[in-house]
Nucleic acid binder design. Structure first.
Lengths: 336, 336
DNA sequence: GAGGACGGCCAAAACGTTTTGGGAGATAAT
DNA sequence: ATTATCTCCCAAAACGTTTTGGCCGTCCTC
């Protein structure tokens, strides 16, 4: 039903070859013929069949991205922003984006394999790397181009962009120390994520350097959601000697922690300090506005996508392993 | 480089046809040959080339979804949840999901057209319909299967799922009236969206029915972000006679409104009531927990995807236009 | 006027599948 | 012995492109 190149050939009386070449601006077709072909193609509403094009070209011009969803109430500002970054960039470069949703686990790898081996994508974007990330190992084995957001702890050589979470936490802890806090607790994301270890290390090292430590009961673990931030903060506040400052491993848990504080009638920023990590858009308009470490998620999405496209196209990269310096954003949630 | 069906044929000494048929379980190949072929295919690590398969089958098994992003700091829990719904469902049914990001406007329609005409997708999911939605008109014209989240005001016959926003707002307003509120303000999303008119109508009609009205200066407009909720609520609170209750057209703006209230040292739920719409996961853990109207976004994503797949596969639908009854979720942000 | 260069065009192969329409040989029915 | 019916298999066409290699004139050059 749709118009093919063959239809145009028939209509113009030219060969398929000539039509194809005319439409692609080759110079071995005369200007008049080209003009004529282009015009009829337009009239007939021709759009190339991308499947056929790709089969022939042996390239898909498609990037793969697997969204690690957790349960139905999946809602993380991190991902919408990141997705916007990679989506926009891919679009600008003429690439499509194939998105799958899959919680980490067994079937996850199967999807990666199938998309690659089925030649559905030219490359992958991997997000939220884990310490020993099977996805990275698989992609390396298969020789598929990919770029990751985050490092692993295996000493693998692969392209990534990451933010120096340890440095970020360090800045944050120093800030709190300077404000006089001595009892600082930390709600950590699950340690299977590399960024979680990284951030925890930053907290611990900075405290140690200051002659303090992170006591065992001041280190609790959440699952990155607001709900768990609330629950864990509540536990911290119930301690016989509760902390005067709570750092959360991401903004979402920090918001939860703020709610926990407020639920007991205390005031965030005055009675107790709360800080996050990520600087999601909500951090600015929360009450009180959240002190946090900025992570340019959108920009990282763009960078990763551009790197991946360059790799796919065989262009050289200036640097394949980029670690961004974090930036501390001081707002009111830790007081003055 | 990758293994093709031809390689298997060569290795097994059978024809391409037989290999293909064996792998698809046709019964005109003997059990022994089939077994042998399947085994070697596995040994050789064969994965069918989906491009070729699709070109031949004239189906893509892919659904299209265009994420309407607004600027780099795009972050809306609505979309992550919706995306999870459609992504999971598509995956279960063996469909891929092709996601583009594109702000509404000129180029938007071009993308829809290209994906359809380029035979990249079998159908589309349209989200956040507008009153006169050019996307719907285009898709209808092209005869592409699609299902929308939301209605339009043109009287077009197309499949959709929507929630009865007017009824939801009605319940919310009644709740506030019952609590004694008489000065109720509304922060509306842009009226180009059908759901915005719907919700506004619900607010106005219910107030009118109660012998009240929505005065002009109590009706303000935000852009669905938390930031604009904060700004507009601030304007409302600056009025000579400020409202005692603020309803926001979505949760995100409600959170902003809550911040605005708290910034002036007032207490949400005691000094002033704030309510939202959507019941995003954050509503539950905000402080105070937000009274809002529940919208089962994940489930709607699932429903829409299932409907679309049925349409594509030519199966009959029980109902093509579904309007869900909303549910009021009373929490503490409007007091007792 | 022979040789070469060039401009404009095209047939055919290729990409990796699935499907169509048989065909060969064995067994069963007449 | 002929015909019919299976069982197992295959060659070739098709899906819609791009690319390869070459062909046929015309125009120039010596």
């Amino acid at each position: 039903m749709p118009v093919t190149i063959k239809d145009i050939a028939k209509r113009t009386g030219k060969s398929i070859t000539t039509v194809s070449r005319a439409l692609h601006g080759y110079d071995d077709v005369s200007p008049e013929t080209r003009e004529m072909i282009v015009r009829t193609a337009e009239e007939m509403g021709y759009t190339p069949n991308l499947l056929a094009q790709r089969l022939q070209k042996q390239r898909t011009d498609t990037l793969g991205f697997i969204l690690p969803t957790f349960g139905p109430r999946f809602s993380d500002p991190f991902f919408s922003e990141f997705l916007a970054g990679i989506g926009n960039t891919a679009g600008e470069y003429g690439y499509d984006l194939l998105v799958s949703t899959q919680p980490p686990g067994e079937k996850e790898l199967e999807i990666y394999r199938k998309k690659v081996m089925g030649r559905q994508v030219d490359g992958f974007i991997v997000v939220r790397t884990r310490c020993h990330d099977p996805r990275i190992q698989l992609l390396r084995e298969m020789g598929t181009p990919f770029v990751a957001f985050g490092r692993t702890e295996d000493d693998l050589d692969y392209p990534f962009v990451d933010e120096d979470g340890a440095a970020g936490m360090s800045m944050l802890v120093e800030h709190l120390l300077k404000l006089g806090h001595r009892r600082i607790a930390y709600i950590s994301p699950p340690l299977e994520y590399t960024f979680a270890r990284d951030r925890l290390r930053g907290v611990q090292e900075t405290l140690t350097a200051a002659g303090l430590a992170l006591p065992e009961d001041y280190l609790v673990f959440g699952d990155l959601t607001q709900r768990s931030g609330l629950a864990e903060a509540a536990r911290l506040l119930n301690l016989p000697e509760p902390p005067t400052a709570i750092i959360a491993g991401n903004d979402l848990m920090a918001f939860g922690a703020m709610s926990a504080v407020q639920q007991r009638g205390m005031q965030v920023g005055r009675d107790i300090a709360v800080a996050g990590f990520d600087d999601t858009p909500m951090a600015e308009t929360a009450h009180p506005p959240l002190t946090t470490v900025h992570q340019p998620i959108y920009k990282i999405g763009r960078m990763i996508t551009e790197m991946l496209i360059k790799i796919i196209q065989g262009e050289p990269l200036e640097s394949t392993q980029i670690i961004l310096k974090p930036q501390l954003i001081v707002r009111q949630s830790c007081g003055e």
